[in-house]
Amino acid sequence: MSAGDDARFMALALSLGARGLGRVWPNPAVGCVIVQAGRIVGRGWTAPGGRPHAEPQALAQAGEAGRGATAYVSLEPCSHHGITPPCAEALAAAGVARVVTALEDPDPRVAGRGHAMLRAAGIEVTTGVLAESAWRAHRGFLLNRTKGRPAVTLKLASSFDGRIATATGESRWITGPEARHIVHAMRARHDAVMVGGGTARADDPDLTVRGMGATHQPVRVVCSRRLDLPRDGRLAVTARAVPVWLCHGPDADPGRRAAWNGLGARTIEVAVGPGGQLDPGSILQALGAAGLTRVFCEGGGSLAASLLSAGLVDELVGFTAGLALGAEGRPALGVLGLDRLAEAPRFRLIETGAVGNDVLHRWERA
C-alpha cells in the first residue's frame, strides 16, 4: 500500500469511529477497516456501551478474507484482558499481515503494548498515519487517560454584539431553527451536556437530544454549589428516565442531596475555588473519574467564564445571529478579570459557515 492509500483508509476508519461518539464512554470511539488487495473486506466501529470493540467486528465481517490483509485502526489495539480478549490478540489470530494505526493508546494498560504484541506475532506495524486528525477525534479519551478529565466543548449562541438575552432575560430564540437542530446533533455526539445552576433555574431546560430520532441521551450535568435547584422542573421529573448528575459544593444542604437522590439524580461533591464558586478543575476531574470523555457545556456565563479562565475549554462553538441587543442585554460570558489582551484565552479558527440566517464558527485551543 502507498502512503496515499494508508491515509485514505485511515480517514475511513476515523469516520467510522466517529459514529460511536457520545455512545461508547468510557471507551474510545475507534474505527477499523480491513483491506485485502486494495478492496475493503471488513469494517467496524466501537459498539454502543463500548463493546464489542471495532477490530473484532471488522474481522468478523472479513472472515477468511482477513488473512494476509491490512487492518487500519484509528487507535492502538488494546493489549489487556478485560471483559473481552485483547484486540491485538484477535488481529494476530485472524492472520492479518499488517496493521496501520494513527496513535498509541496512552492508557497505562496499553501504552505501546498492543503494537509490541502485534510485532511479536510477526505482523508489520505502521503508526502515526493521520495522527493529528486522530488526536482531534480521540481528544476526549486521550485527555481522560492523560489528565483525568474529559474534553470540553463550550457552545455559545449570541447576538451580533455578544448577548444571550435581553435585559429582562428573554432569550428564546436568538438563533434560528437550523442552528438549534445542529446543537441537538452536537449534544448527541457528546457524553454529557453541562450547564450552571443559574441556567437551570432561569431556563428550566430539558438538555436532551430532540427532533432527530435519538435512541440515546447524554448525561445531563448541572453545577450548583448549594443545590438550590427547582425540584419540580423538567430535569427533576425526568431524572429517572435520563441521567442527571449534580455537581455541588461540600456545604450543600444534606436534605437537598437526599431529595435529589430520591428523585433519581446522582449528586457529586466537588471542591470550591478561592472565589466561592465551584472549582472548574475539580468538576472536570470528578466527571472524568466517572468515565466521561466529552462534555458539551451550554453555559451560563459564570460557568463558561470559569472554564475559560482555568484553560479547560478545548473547543469553542459559536452561533451568531444577525440582531443586536445592546449593552443592557445579558453578556454571553461572566467576568474573566483580564487586564491585558495577552491574558485572554486564545483559540484557532477551524470552521465557519452559514446556518440558516446565523453564522456557525468553531475554534480549538491554540
Results as ranks from 00 to 15, higher is better:
P218E: 08
M212G: 15
L229S: 02
D191Y: 09
V222D: 02
T238W: 06
R180F: 08
P205F: 06
R234P: 08
R220D: 06
G169W: 07
H248Q: 08
R257D: 01
M186P: 00
T175D: 11
L246H: 04
G233L: 09
V183Q: 05
R256W: 01
V193Y: 03
A214K: 04
G211R: 11
R210D: 15
H181N: 03
L207I: 14
C247W: 01
G196L: 01
P177W: 00
M212Q: 15
T238A: 13
R180G: 05
Q217W: 14
A239S: 13
G196D: 02
H248S: 10
D191V: 12
D203R: 13
G211W: 10
V193F: 07
C247T: 15
V209T: 13
C223P: 05
G198R: 11
G255I: 00
W173I: 04
D204H: 12
T208K: 13
W173Y: 07
T199Y: 06
Q217V: 14
D191F: 05
G169S: 06
I174W: 00
V209M: 12
D228H: 09
T175S: 11
S171G: 08
T175W: 05
R189K: 07
R210K: 15
S171Y: 10
V242L: 05
G255F: 01
G255W: 01
R180P: 01
V222F: 07
H216K: 12
R172S: 09
M194A: 14
V193C: 14
P218S: 12
V221C: 08
M212P: 12
T238I: 08
M186A: 01
G196W: 01
D232G: 15
A192K: 09
R180L: 14
A202M: 09
P243Q: 13
R257S: 03
G176S: 00
G198W: 05
R234Y: 13
P250A: 12
R210W: 15
L246R: 02
D253G: 10
G198T: 13
W245R: 06
P218Q: 13
D232E: 15
I174Y: 02
T215I: 06
G255D: 03
W173V: 05
D251M: 10
V242N: 11
